Computed example of a mutant assay.
Amino acid sequence: MNALSRWTGRAVGALAALASLGVLVMMLHICADIVLRTLFDAPVPATVEIVSRYYMVLIAFLPLAWIERRNAMVSVEITDAALSPRMLRISDALVSLLVTCVYAVLTYTTWRVALREWATGTYVLALETRVPVWPTYFLPPLGFGLAALATLLRAAMQLAGGPAAREGAAS
């Protein structure tokens, strides 16, 4: 399980770094579009389409596993004070398993959509230019799938009584 946890940690870090790079490239792309449009009346073609269909999808879905691995997702802890440490660990593990199931369903559903969009070669038109967008449909299942793995590992560590702490120690 340690090897799987290490591999997951590296994959999670790589996807988070890719999403961070996406933010940087998006900012440069938008700045270039503004400068070229303002100074030379020559905007970068398909900026809106690329930002909304590539960068935003990349930024939204790839860091999910990183957030889950750090246990930094929003949570409500109303009953936690009334639970014993053992019951709290079991409660956290059950929540992690439920979240794993949700991510697994989302992975399966978005994977099927990605395959359909790939088969049809989905694109958008931007000023009579075809911008293929089918590749971006594979980003959500990648993010959801790795998040499912991260939450499953967290549940296993919680059930085993390991260091899957509540405040981000699993990073």
Rank of each mutant, 00 (worst) to 15 (best):
A81G: 15
N71Y: 11
L58I: 15
W7L: 14
P141R: 06
R86N: 03
V102L: 15
A60M: 15
S20R: 00
V102R: 11
L98D: 04
V113A: 09
S5W: 02
T151I: 01
L64W: 02
G143T: 12
V51G: 02
L18I: 12
I30T: 08
R116V: 10
F138M: 09
R116C: 07
L142R: 00
P132D: 11
V95N: 02
A148G: 14
A60N: 09
L97C: 14
E49K: 12
Y55S: 01
A65Y: 05
M1I: 07
G22I: 07
S5L: 11
L88H: 13
V105S: 03
L97I: 09
E167K: 03
L15C: 07
A150L: 03
G121Q: 03
L139D: 00
A169F: 14
M157V: 04
E77Y: 05
R37E: 07
A169Q: 14
T109A: 15
P135I: 08
G161Y: 04
T129P: 04
G121V: 00
T151W: 07
C31E: 03
E77R: 12
W118T: 14
S171C: 07
S91T: 14
P132W: 09
T38K: 06
V95T: 07
G121W: 01
R6Y: 06
L62T: 02
Y123L: 11
V131S: 05
S171Q: 09
G145M: 13
A42W: 02
F138H: 01
S5A: 13
Y137K: 05
C101S: 14
T151A: 03
A11I: 12
A156D: 01
G143V: 14
